[in-house]
Design a protein around this nucleic acid. Structure first.
Lengths: 145, 145
DNA sequence: TGCGATTAAATTGCATACAATATAATTACC
DNA sequence: GGTAATTATATTGTATGCAATTTAATCGCA
């Protein structure tokens, strides 16, 4: 145990987290290609399928993304005809995102994807539950002590 | 339980993985800023601190990254004077990356970072061990059945 | 009521990521 | 030995991500 052992990749917890997230998102790609969405676009649509209408900051809170990422992404979804972007009447600063008919219809094509991905991950239910619990524990940890 | 419940964000396992990885990397930033490295540059240096010399494809296997990411990144580390990039004598296709004196010296400044990050994550040892085990289980799953 | 502070998005700049393609060197094999 | 196939990087193109800044609208409050 030398003084640098803490700097070994194999002793890191953050690294497998980083690598695993990338690999899993990469595994989604073939399935998402069929409905012409990227992973980030897909999770954005998920929020809209649940809520129908959200504004940019609410979306950012749900997805842990900021307007620098969301603004161009939402413009792309608008170009694809999946969402509408309109300023709120009550507060012109707020950009309201609404699902279109086409966006709603896409849900029926996406409904098989979670099961297909589950097959890829190959985790038994206990591990999946543990992983879920621990990840949300980390996510819930306040930013600054 | 409607037929679309599988598409809810809260029922996803991939999403907290994706979000958690991003948040943890973001928490590294203040510590990495002090030694002027990005997270990806940091894990690249970690491999070099362990091995002293690697080529691009070995690095790619360790870090789950390809040459499209690594080539520009390694050029930046070279510009900073932390590594040397030289073609192998035996096989000119191979780009050999070697730690410089300056790159080696940086290890002493990085040695506190893992402990500082551990403080941020706020996980008890059992959860950390579970998380580590499960993440590597996923990473080890072969790409195609 | 008017103006400074705050807030919500958008923009800018930099650094990844990865698929697909291109290039150059090496191997296989006839 | 010479050429097709393979291999290792590099390049190109597209899509994030995030910090910092800007812009526009709204709020707080004297």
């Amino acid at each position: 145990m030398d003084k640098y052992s803490c700097l070994k990749i194999e002793n890191q917890l953050c690294f497998p987290l980083y690598a695993c997230a990338k690999e899993v998102v990469r595994k989604y790609k073939p399935f998402l290609d069929r409905i012409d969405l990227t992973y980030t676009q897909y999770i954005t649509m998920m929020v809209l399928w649940e809520r129908n209408t959200v504004n940019v900051s609410e979306l950012g809170e749900c997805l842990y993304l900021d307007s620098g990422t969301l603004t161009p992404l939402l413009k792309k979804l608008e170009t694809k005809g999946l969402v509408r972007r309109e300023r709120s009447r009550e507060d012109e600063r707020v950009m309201v995102i609404t699902l279109t008919e086409k966006g709603l219809a896409l849900r029926d094509e996406a409904v098989d994807i979670p099961a297909q991905m589950g097959g890829c991950m190959n985790l038994d239910p206990e591990d999946a539950a543990q992983l879920y619990r621990i990840l949300y524990k980390i996510l819930k940890t306040p930013s600054e002590g």
